[in-house]
């Protein structure tokens, strides 16, 4: 466990030193401009706009970091051959992978938390106070984080056996596909053949289902999110990440480095 933690903390340190967290400046500026601009409109929908905009930015920024940094987690180490000295230490390849995953998820957690704090500050600026229903925003942020963790695991898996560019394409492709799980399972009314319907229905259970993670609308309108959904999404993300990381470990453990 300490080995995984060592790799994770070093990955976090790398991200910080590579100025990954600089995106927070962009987010802070966005929130400040939005708060000032929305405050001037004052149509009673200030908080809805701020929350929608803020959560969308948190999600997009997080996803971009997850995909672009995620695919480099392993490939960069292989390319630069920094892995040689590390693998000569008493560390298993799967421990390295899980550590890398943990390090980027930690980075993204810190990043997302900072952005969430910025969002709440902007909200405070326009509303001057918080309500109990604003807690839903925290749940939405948590779901974004779970979604991002799945994307990191996928990026890591692809980077274990393909080039960074292809890994980006595959990860982005799966993410987009994962937003249309509901449509894939409900092709019965359309004109497609039963075989295609069966195929899409089958594949929809393998693809990551990101639809359940989107509670931005509920958060923007202060609606409650069922507790069961929080449990369900947490379990789903944990199991999905575990399976993808296990697959990545199997691939990576057999890989000859250059």
């Amino acid at each position: 466990m300490s080995r995984i933690l060592s790799v994770a903390l070093n990955t976090f340190r790398e991200a910080v030193r590579d100025r990954v967290l600089y995106n927070l400046v962009f987010f802070a500026l966005l929130m400040m401009v939005a708060a000032v601009f929305v405050g001037q409109i004052s149509l009673g929908i200030e908080s809805t706009i701020i929350v929608s905009l803020g959560l969308s930015a948190i999600s997009i920024i997080g996803l971009l970091i997850a995909v672009f940094i995620g695919v480099g987690l392993v490939s960069k180490e292989m390319e630069k051959r920094t892995l040689y000295a590390l693998l000569a230490k008493p560390v298993r390849r799967w421990e390295f992978l899980v550590g890398k995953f943990g390090g980027l998820v930690l980075t993204l957690t810190v990043n997302t938390m900072a952005m969430a704090a910025g969002l709440f500050l902007a909200l405070l600026f326009v509303k001057h106070s918080f309500e109990a229903s604003d807690a839903t925003i925290l749940i939405a942020v948590y779901f974004i984080l779970l979604k991002i963790a799945i994307v990191v695991s996928l990026a890591l898996l692809f980077s274990c056996f393909t080039s960074p560019l292809l890994a980006i394409l595959f990860t982005a492709g799966l993410y987009v596909a994962g937003l249309f799980i509901h449509e894939m399972r409900n092709l019965s009314g359309s004109k497609v053949s039963p075989a295609v319907q069966a195929f899409f229905s089958w594949i929809s259970y393998i693809l990551p289902n990101f639809e359940n993670f989107n509670v931005m609308a509920a958060a923007a309108h202060g609606k409650a999110v069922p507790g069961i959904l929080i449990l369900q999404n947490t379990a789903y993300a944990a199991i999905y990440c575990a399976i993808v990381l296990a697959a990545a470990s199997v691939v990576f453990s057999r890989r000859n480095l250059k």
Binding site: S2, S6, N10, R81, T82, A88, K89
Partner: peptide, 24 residues
């Protein structure tokens, strides 16, 4: 093990790198 033409994490200092490896 010393790899041929070694390359290490260039964002670390030598002390940090050795400390990182020593953790294992």
């Amino acid at each position: 093990y010393l790899p041929e033409q070694p390359y290490f994490y260039d964002y670390l200092t030598a002390s940090e790198l050795l400390d990182y490896f020593a953790r294992f």
